[in-house]
Design a protein around this nucleic acid. Sequence first.
DNA 1: CTGAAAGCGCTTACAG
DNA 2: CTGAAAGCGCTTACAG
Lengths: 356, 356
Amino acid sequence: MSISQIDIASKLGVSQRAVSFALNGKPGVSPIMRKQIVELARNMGYRPNAAARAMVSQQTRNIGVVIHSLGNGDGGGGHAYDTVSGINSIIEPAGYTTCLVQMTDVESGDEGMARVFREQALDGMIFHAGVLNHVRERLGQWVERTIWCDAGVEDETNCIWRDEVEAGRLAGQAVVEAGFRDVLYFHSPPGEPRAYRHRERREAGVRSAVEAAGGVVRCHAERDEEMLHVDRWLHLLRPETAVVASEYRHAEGLLFFAAAAGLCAGRDFALVCCDDRDFYQRRLPHLSRSGFDRFAMGQRAARMLLQRLEAVNEPAPSQIVHPTWIAGHSDSPRIRPTLVPITELRTPPAGAGGNS
Amino acid sequence: MSISQIDIASKLGVSQRAVSFALNGKPGVSPIMRKQIVELARNMGYRPNAAARAMVSQQTRNIGVVIHSLGNGDGGGGHAYDTVSGINSIIEPAGYTTCLVQMTDVESGDEGMARVFREQALDGMIFHAGVLNHVRERLGQWVERTIWCDAGVEDETNCIWRDEVEAGRLAGQAVVEAGFRDVLYFHSPPGEPRAYRHRERREAGVRSAVEAAGGVVRCHAERDEEMLHVDRWLHLLRPETAVVASEYRHAEGLLFFAAAAGLCAGRDFALVCCDDRDFYQRRLPHLSRSGFDRFAMGQRAARMLLQRLEAVNEPAPSQIVHPTWIAGHSDSPRIRPTLVPITELRTPPAGAGGNS
DNA sequence: CTGAAAGCGCTTACAG
DNA sequence: CTGAAAGCGCTTACAG
């Protein structure tokens, strides 16, 4: 039904080889014939058959991008897609296609695996998810060229991950410099599906900075879906205490639900976050945080993979993503940075939320 | 390098046909031989070559999912991915793979198009984006089986879109029933990249409901990235006025930045939204809104496409997604639904934000 | 029930 | 500079 090189060749009375060479810009066809062929191909609406090309060239030009799915709609606001966008932005111009694979923790046996894994269908993959060990090992066997991107795998090669300890340290240092010595580390309870040891590491970083300054770090665990229940944690917010949110979801909860309950970050309490989202730059610039450019990380992971695909397949040296500190800023007079010097926080008025 | 059916066949001294039939569960192989073959294939780690299979079967089992990209990290919080997740949740178990394609408005000529379009590489595609007309026509020619999913295309077949007028009407009706007659419709300024006429339609719906009750609708346009500048719009919030946010981003801004500035939805002003996100159910349940389950819409679009792929290729009748009204609710005493009866809103205390 | 063979649409040595 | 041909790894009529 669709037109092939043979259709073009026979119409012009030339060999199929000539068509292939002309269309692919290879030498060995006379300029006049080349022009005829290219023109006719365009007029006939010829498009090469990817499967045939893949078979002979032994590469599919498809790249798997595996993300962890919590099920229906992810439920999390989809920070994994920040990374996916970064990956795609590099891979697509290079002529590859992003094949999205969503995985749950309870991955069934080989039969339940996505087709893209059951068959040989990928040139490589980028794994972006906390993944159970047995799944990891299986996939590693199946797809020879894999980059582990913030996936809880930290080998010497083919991995890229963020320095979470440093992210915590930056946050801790910032609150110390703002004069705080009492710090509340706000994190997810253990046992969350995305088990990738960022919680402990960020905490360790926070501690190292705060304790070096003679401060003390307390912890509070809260499921992010429960942040709405402000009564669970509102009493912990005090002007003398800096709150360090481990994940962006906690920071959003602390920012917004506290405000709804009458306590405002940057006015009634100090807030910093060890995490970041790409769109915060435009939509939440006043949040003081450890920068974590997932889009850029995805780009780097994609470049690591491309290097392995284009050159000889030697492992790519692992990379560590170093966080940077982003001081919250606001050019709106009524919205304040979430971290201000301790002396600028107001003491709670009688009856305000802080002391119930 | 990788093992093929021939490797298995020769090792067992049988024909390649036998291997193919055995592995694919087709009749025509003796049970004993079948068992031998299946076992050996497993031991040798055989995986079928997707390209070869695609070539002979004339189907790639790849499906393109096109989303609009604003560039770096999308910048928008990625509501398109709610839909993508829904699509993938249906397509993957059916043996297809989601190929993600991000498109910008300024799509260059055919040469700059993603490889997946330049070549014949897809069995079908789902287009989820407001798309410029010339791009639309080109892609429609290239991929014969396309479903237009909330993409600004509304033909009799192969389209699925949300009833935006109804979404506005539901929001308008809700505020009317809560006793409001003064309504502020809060929307994006025209000329936003994702041009898909939801802004006007939602407004028309709001108007129809409010004006039928003798109320009046005013409008205010604000870019969502500018919501942080509360001084631009804070003075518009009054207890007697119900604010109807057109898009979820505006609702979030109205919810959160107003709170940071001291005005609280459900206490100082009423807020409803014509839009929705999948994770609101868990993380923002108190927002009163027109329900819009993008995940479910993606699933429906995927089923429409699968129907065209599995059966004869006859066009799928278009579907309209009807919004439902979701009354905000909260089991936390300090967080209130964003829409409450007008009588329950407090009159602004002197000096509060509403009257500068 | 099974083997030998054609063919899917390309790329690329190999002869002329 | 160009044509005739092999082969990538499968599926599936076609003979036996």
